[in-house]
Each structure stands twice: as structure tokens, then as C-alpha cells.
């Protein structure tokens, strides 16, 4: 089947041009989702292989959210694998976390305090410390600049859920930000 063979390299070329520019983005998301460099590499590789396999049927949306949705599915398998090992705790948030109120009395913050700038390692740690599913929502919005609609599609939840998760993620980050400053004093 020479014809089919000659199409494959062409498909690979088109895929390469369309998908490889988002390798750093995809890897960044994988690092935050899995919080492990080696696992992130494996997940991104698997993501790109799956994406290539399905590239014939790709008709949009934008390439980046499409890759992210695939990556998320890959990571889900990794979560399941980790859940089988006794030491893991991937799904940090208990079921009720999303329904919990945003404000807690003991987390009241002074209205006059200005947040201080932090170095990039600290910023990464603060984000990585956020519980799922708030972490992925936050990373998709704040680091990957996806719209609410795109985040909703990638994470397979309604836009309203995206909004409440993002609100919660930022609130948690804000308290962690301040707590980190307190620790340094």
C-alpha cells in the first residue's frame, strides 16, 4: 500500500507543525497535574502519541485545549494507578470540598496588607500545593490563559463549576500566600 505509506509522513509533518509548538505548555500542565517530573514526561509523550493517532479526526477546537483534554485523560489513568498504591494521595479534595463555603472565620485577612512578590520556586510550590480539582482549573486559567469555556471543555464540567472552582483556587492561594509570608517572619 504505497499510497498510505506516503501519506503517513505528511500527516506526521502536519501534526508536528500543529502540535509541537505546545509541547512546553503541555509539559507545564502535566507537571502541575502530576507533581512529578518523570511522570509528567511519560504522560506528555503518551498524550502526543494519542493525539497523533486521532489527528485525522481533529477538527478543532484550538490545538492547545485539544491537547490538554487528551493529557487530562492520560493523567486520569495515572491517578488510578497511583490510587492503587498505598502511599499516594492524588485527589486531595474530599467530595464535599467543592460545596464548602469560600470564607472561613479563621482565614480572615487584613484588608490593608499588600501581598508581597515571591520568587518563582515559591510560586510554583504554592500552586502545586493547591488541591485538585482547583489546581488544574487555576493552572488552565492563570498559567495557560484558557477561557472559561475552554476550561469547561477540557475539564468536562459546566462553566459555572469552572467559575466556582477558580474562585476557590484563588481564595486558597491567597491564604497560602499570606501564610507563607507569616512563616518567614
Amino acid at each position: 500500500m504505497p499510497r498510505k505509506k506516503s501519506e503517513d509522513p505528511e500527516k506526521a509533518l502536519r501534526f508536528r507543525e500543529a502540535a509541537l509548538p505546545f509541547l512546553d505548555d503541555t509539559y507545564t500542565l502535566a507537571r502541575y497535574l502530576l507533581r512529578d517530573a518523570a511522570d509528567a514526561e511519560d504522560a506528555v509523550q503518551e498524550c502526543y502519541l494519542r493525539a497523533f493517532k486521532h489527528f485525522d479526526r481533529y477538527r478543532g477546537p484550538a490545538m492547545k485545549p485539544w491537547l490538554f483534554a487528551i493529557l487530562r485523560n492520560v493523567c486520569r489513568a495515572e491517578y488510578a494507578r497511583r490510587a492503587g498504591t498505598p502511599t499516594s494521595a492524588i485527589e486531595d479534595a474530599p467530595e464535599c470540598a467543592e460545596q464548602a463555603p469560600l470564607w472561613h472565620e479563621d482565614q480572615e485577612t487584613p484588608e490593608t496588607q499588600i501581598l508581597r512578590k515571591k520568587d518563582s520556586d515559591t510560586l510554583r510550590q504554592l500552586v502545586a500545593a493547591l488541591a485538585e480539582p482547583f489546581r488544574q482549573t487555576f493552572v488552565l486559567r492563570e498559567i495557560q490563559n484558557l477561557s472559561y469555556r475552554e476550561i469547561a471543555d477540557v475539564t468536562e464540567v459546566p462553566v459555572g463549576t469552572v467559575m466556582s472552582r477558580l474562585a476557590r483556587a484563588r481564595a486558597m492561594l491567597r491564604f497560602a500566600w499570606i501564610a507563607e509570608e507569616e512563616q518567614r517572619k
Partner: peptide, 16 residues
Amino acid sequence: GDVRYTAPAALRQRIE
């Protein structure tokens, strides 16, 4: 801040 990660060259090579 620099909160993004850069994919390792080896990963790029493996995918290619």
C-alpha cells in the same frame, strides 16, 4: 514570575 516549565530536550526527541 517564571512558573512555567520547559519540556526536556529528551522528551521532545522521544516524541519526534
